[in-house]
Nucleic acid binder design. Structure first.
Lengths: 203, 203
DNA sequence: CATTATAGCTAACGGTCGTTCGCATTGTCA
DNA sequence: TGACAATGCGAACGACCGTTAGCTATAATG
C-alpha cells in the first residue's frame, strides 16, 4: 500500500476499495481497516466519507495531470508512421497495466454521474486530453509530410476513439485482453494505411 | 410508468431508479413505492433485490434485442454517402432521446462491473452490435462502389467509436448536447471525405 | 516539568438496509 | 358456499451504515 502519512494511506485504501465495489458498496470501517486503523479514527483526518472520496479523486486527478504532463516535446516527435504506432502502443501498455490508472478508470466509470466535477474529469480523462495530445502531434506530423493534410482534430478523434472504447472493454472483460490489444494494433495499422502520406494503395 | 402487470411495473420502477442512483443507492422500499406498493410486497413477485435487478436487465436486454432487430434489409441500404449519414443521424437521435435506452446506458455504465453477464451486455451494447451492423452495411456499400474497398470491420470500428464515446459524454454532461451532436456530425462528414469513393481531394 | 495538541481507541447513537413472518383481503374454482 | 391460492399489508428482525462522544496514550511545546 502506497502512501506514507496516514492521510495518504487512507486515500490509497479508498482508491482500491471504491474501484472494486463503488462508493456505496464500501463502508468506512473497511477503508479504515485497509489503512491500518479503526473507522472512527478516519474522522481525525477527514470530515467524512464524502470528503475521503473527493480528496481521493483530487489526488488521482493531480497524479494523472502530472503523468500526462509528458506531452512529447517538439524534438521527440515520432518521425515516421511506425514510430507513431510504437509510441502509441507503449502508452497503451502503460494505461492498461498501471495499477492506479486502472483503478481510477473503474471509479470514473462507476461514479461518473455522482457530481459534475467527476463527469467533467471523466470526459477529460477518456476523451479530451487524449484527443488534444494527438491533435497537436498530428498537426506537426502533417507539417513534416508524414501524415496527409487534414483536420488534425478529427483525425485525432478517429485515432483515439477506438482505443478508448476498447480499453473500456478490457476493463470490464480483462479476460479478453489479448483480443483487445490485437484489435488496437490492427486499428493502428488501418489508420496508418488510411492517413499516412507514403502509403500507396490500400485494401 | 409503463407496464401493466405488477411484475412489469416493478421492473420499470427499478429501471428508472437504478438509472438515477445506481444499484446500491436505491432501497427496495423506494422501488416498491414507485411501483405502487410497499416493500415487503415485492417479495410476492421476486426473490429479492438482486432478482429484481437481474430481471430488469434481462427485460431491457430483450427490449434492446428487438429494437435492434431492425437491421436494414438489402433493399433498404443507403445508396449514397449522404443517405448513410442521414440514416446514422436518425439512429443517433433515437439513441440520444429514447427514455429506456438512456436509462439502460446509465445503468450499464454504473453497474458494468457487477457481473460477467452485465459486462458482456455492456460491450455488446456499446460496441459489438453497432460495429457488426455497420460492418455488414459497409461491406455492401463497398460492393456497390459507394465506399472505397477496405476491411469493412475496421472501417466500421472507426465509424462507430467516436459516436459511442461522444454519446457517453452526452450521458454524463447533457448540457453539452449541442456540442456532442455537432462533433458527431463533423465526424460523419470527415468519415465521408476519407472513405467515400467519389470524393476527390481532401483537406 | 507542565501543558496542550494529535491521533488512536471503544461504545454507542439514530437511521436505513434487505428480508421474513403472520395476518387480512380478494379472486377463483369446485 | 366453502376451500384455496394469490396478493397486499404492518411489524419486526438482525445487520450494517456514517457519525459523534468521550477516554487514553503519545508527541510536541512553553
Amino acid at each position: 500500500m502506497k502512501g506514507n502519512s496516514t492521510k495518504e494511506r487512507i486515500l490509497y485504501a479508498a482508491l482500491d476499495l471504491f474501484a472494486q465495489k463503488g462508493y456505496d458498496g464500501v463502508g468506512v470501517d473497511l477503508i479504515a481497516e485497509k489503512a491500518g486503523l479503526k473507522g472512527p479514527s478516519l474522522y481525525r483526518h477527514y470530515k467524512g466519507k464524502e470528503d475521503i472520496f473527493n480528496s481521493m479523486i483530487e489526488m488521482v486527478a493531480s497524479h494523472y495531470r502530472e503523468g500526462f504532463g509528458l506531452h512529447p516535446k517538439a524534438e521527440e516527435l515520432p518521425d515516421s508512421m511506425d514510430a507513431l504506432i510504437a509510441d502509441a502502443m507503449q502508452r497503451l501498455a502503460f494505461t492498461m497495466h498501471d495499477d492506479i490508472v486502472k483503478k481510477t478508470r473503474r471509479i470514473f466509470a462507476m461514479e461518473q454521474f455522482r457530481s459534475a466535477r467527476i463527469a467533467e474529469l471523466t470526459t477529460r480523462y477518456h476523451l479530451e486530453n487524449l484527443q488534444q495530445l494527438y491533435t497537436g502531434m498530428f498537426a506537426a506530423l502533417m507539417d513534416k509530410g508524414i501524415l496527409k493534410k487534414d483536420d488534425p482534430e478529427y483525425v485525432a478523434l478517429e485515432f483515439v476513439s477506438p482505443v478508448s472504447l476498447l480499453i473500456h472493454m478490457y476493463d470490464r472483460q480483462p479476460e479478453r485482453e489479448k483480443e483487445v490489444i490485437e484489435k488496437i494494433q490492427k486499428h493502428f495499422e488501418h489508420f496508418a494505411n488510411v492517413y499516412a502520406c507514403d502509403t500507396r494503395g490500400r485494401g
